[in-house]
Amino acid sequence: MDKTIQTAAEAVAQIPDGATVMIGGFGGSGAPVELIHALIDQGARHLTVVNNNAGNGHVGLAALIEQGRVDRLICSFPRSADPSVFVEAYKAGRIALEIVPQGTLAERIRAGGAGIPAFYTPTAYGTEVAEGKPVEIFEGRAYVQERWLKADVALIKGELGDSHGNLTYRMAARNFNPVMAMAATTTIAQVSRLVPLGGIDPEHVITPGIFVNRLVEIANPAQEEELNRAEAVYP
């Protein structure tokens, strides 16, 4: 078994128009910038994207939105230092937005990966975000029913990876990446370094390879924050 792919372009080549794509990262930390840029080059349209945010500046997710590829965004916090690309698309009616509280977003994704169709959470009870959702009382307290969230594809970023798809992450760049890896039919990881089997201590594997379909080595990956400080624009 060898899940490694030589280039980001090959890794994302099969993503079809209309796909639901989870993109890891919290802001720029853990964002798979090279995979997103490869998806822009590939040209898939009418995507539904799941991400915590809505892009920053003119690279990564913001660039994907700026290129008109995203019809719908599911996120918790569509603000950033420079959210102008999303704001413009949203105000022009070119992109639909579903706001999900951050913990509910993480748990819906986890549930999708774990085969749990719905769960109850105290989050958002009594707020407009919970309107229309079933409510149940457990031990005297009200909880809102939320449903799983699954995707056709997850684009994630790891630190070390091996040919079986075992992954580690780097510091707070872990964020949504491990849960998104579980929730997609096809999970594509970019890693900063490919290592031989055995090169990751089994005690240190965060995402076991069963959740990863393809991985590509991107050494010295771009950081969205640094690209934005350099006022980079993609493409």
Binding site: S76, P78, P101, G103, T123
Partner: peptide
């Protein structure tokens, strides 16, 4: 304006 909730709704219930 554009709604943005982040983790606040989770934090306040918990």
């Amino acid at each position: 304006g554009i709604p943005a909730v982040g983790g606040a709704m989770d934090l306040v219930q918990s």
